[in-house]
């Protein structure tokens, strides 16, 4: 339990830092650390697969992509988007909507019983593999078509055309 509280504290701490830092690149880096703490949470919950996917896809691929985009955009004081009153007004309305939704949800739903996992090993990679290669064998095989199509397309569109004479 102490590990959980420590990691939870870290998640919230870095999430707050993500919001409050002025420098966008630092903000993204803090977000990466936040995601890393999520990965630890998943491992604590015995969800190996989610942990791996979170680590590779979100932390690895998507956040690095974010970082690249930020660097390419080259954000600084001059290119900062206008913070007009209208934008602030819209932001306030959106925030209030979110709050109303939260209260609505809180009123409608009861607090559920403490979660009883039927099969505590359900998140293990081993079980996922079993489902993937028995029940979902056909979609698993066919997703190779999807990836191949995307690959051919990327090469076809990005390839340099032969010089026309």
């Amino acid at each position: 339990m102490t590990v959980f509280y420590f990691v939870a504290f870290l998640s919230i701490f870095f999430a707050l830092l993500t919001i409050f830092t002025k420098n966008p690149v630092h903000s993204v880096l803090y977000l990466v650390i936040t995601f890393f703490t999520f990965t630890i949470h998943y491992i604590l919950l015995n969800a190996q697969f989610l942990a791996v996917v979170n680590f590779i896809v979100y932390m690895g691929a998507i956040m690095v992509l974010f970082l690249f985009v930020l660097m390419l955009l080259n954000l600084n004081k001059d290119t900062e988007p206008m913070k007009s009153n209208l934008v602030k007004f819209i932001g306030v309305i959106a925030g209030c909507c979110l709050l109303v939704t939260f209260f609505g949800v809180y009123r409608v739903f009861d607090i559920s019983n403490p979660l009883t996992v039927v099969n505590p090993e359900i998140g293990l990679v081993k079980n996922l593999g079993k489902v993937l290669f028995n029940e979902f064998l056909l979609p698993f095989e066919l997703s190779s078509l999807l990836l191949l199509t995307a690959m051919i397309g990327a090469i076809l569109l990005a390839k340099k055309e032969p010089k026309q004479i």
């Binding site: 066919l142 078509l145 999807l146 199509t149 995307a150 051919i152 397309g153 076809l156």
Partner: peptide, 10 residues
């Protein structure tokens, strides 16, 4: 739907 559409995007 994805296989159908991805090929078409290209």
């Amino acid at each position: 739907i994805e296989i159908m559409s991805v090929a078409l995007y290209i």
